[in-house]
């Protein structure tokens, strides 16, 4: 956020106690942010507590001592690094594939006229409304029959197909914002279908493609249901799934809350720098897909 935007054009004062109102607004903002952030903070706090400290009565909001021992333990016992690499591969490849295929389809939808265009576009968009749970059963049975169950490409294909409507929607909007006059100018210069795509459309739409890729990457990272049903092998199970497979700690009778918290941090943390870097683009990305149809 640039400072200029916040300082320009303050709203007309409509109450005599404008300062009081400001104060109230900041208080409300603070409460909102605390409520939204606190559970995540507490997960971090729990992750650096020992189980004994976590179980102590009364519980602590701020850990008495910071203890990172849980992290190496979990990274080893939970096979974090292979899980991480696997998750990056599955989420990354499916996001890349969906952005590519969706981007190609969006180009045809945006720049060409062909039989079945309206029908195909409507079906693609309408498929967003098909609940995942409703498709899961037949996909499971089919995968079982054709041997795609518990394979990496099987799950990548599911995510890829799941990401396509968003990719088509967002990129279609981006392509449409590129003026047609540029196409015509490119056509006069002798650019064909591919020339126009690479020289005119893509340079302008690349930020859109990047946002799409990131949104799909996050979606793939966090997906659970399909991975839960379609994968079994430990070398294929993604990180979200493995939250259900947290090893027990020293005391096997007690739920290892501290280790769950470590697992949670380890699943969430890789997304945080990404979020930092692209939050503004993500905000426009989300709204692009949703508000602009």
């Amino acid at each position: 956020m640039s400072a200029q935007v916040t300082q320009r054009a303050r709203p007309v004062p409509f109450l005599t106690g404008e300062r009081l109102l400001r104060l109230l607004q900041y208080a409300l903002l603070l409460v909102t942010l605390v409520l939204l952030l606190f559970p995540i903070y507490y997960m971090f706090a729990t992750s650096v507590m020992t189980l004994d400290e976590f179980l102590r009565v009364p519980p602590r909001i701020v850990p008495g001592s910071i203890n990172f021992d849980n992290y190496p333990f979990m990274i080893r016992r939970w096979d974090y690094v292979p899980g991480l690499i696997n998750t990056i591969m599955i989420a990354g490849l499916s996001a890349l594939g969906a952005t590519l295929l969706g981007g190609m389809a969006a180009y045809s939808f945006s720049r060409a006229t062909f039989a079945g265009k309206a029908l195909m576009y409507s079906l693609l968009v309408a498929s967003i409304a098909v609940p995942a749970m409703v498709t899961l059963g037949p996909i499971f049975i089919t995968y079982f029959d054709i041997g795609l169950l518990d394979t990496r490409h099987g799950i990548i294909l599911v995510y890829l197909a799941g990401g396509l409507p968003l990719a088509v929607l967002v990129l279609f909007t981006y392509y449409n914002s590129v003026p047609r006059e540029l196409d015509d100018a490119a056509a006069i210069d002798g650019c064909g279908w591919f020339g126009t795509l690479f020289r005119v459309i893509l340079p302008i739409a690349l930020p859109g493609a990047f946002v799409t890729f990131l949104l799909l990457l996050i979606a793939g990272w966090n997906e659970f249901l399909f991975a839960f049903v379609l994968t079994v092998g430990p070398e294929i199970r993604v990180l979200t799934l493995r939250l259900l497979e947290v090893p027990s700690g020293t005391n096997i009778m007690q739920v290892p809350y501290d280790l769950y918290a470590v697992g949670g941090v380890l699943v969430l943390l890789p997304l945080v720098p990404l979020l930092f870097r692209v939050q503004k683009q993500l905000v426009t990305g989300i709204t692009f897909g949703a508000v602009k149809e």
Binding site: L101, A105, M120, L164, P165
Partner: peptide, 9 residues
């Protein structure tokens, strides 16, 4: 350009 995305989806 359209069919891979459409058919897969």
């Amino acid at each position: 350009f359209v069919l891979p995305a459409f058919v897969l989806r």
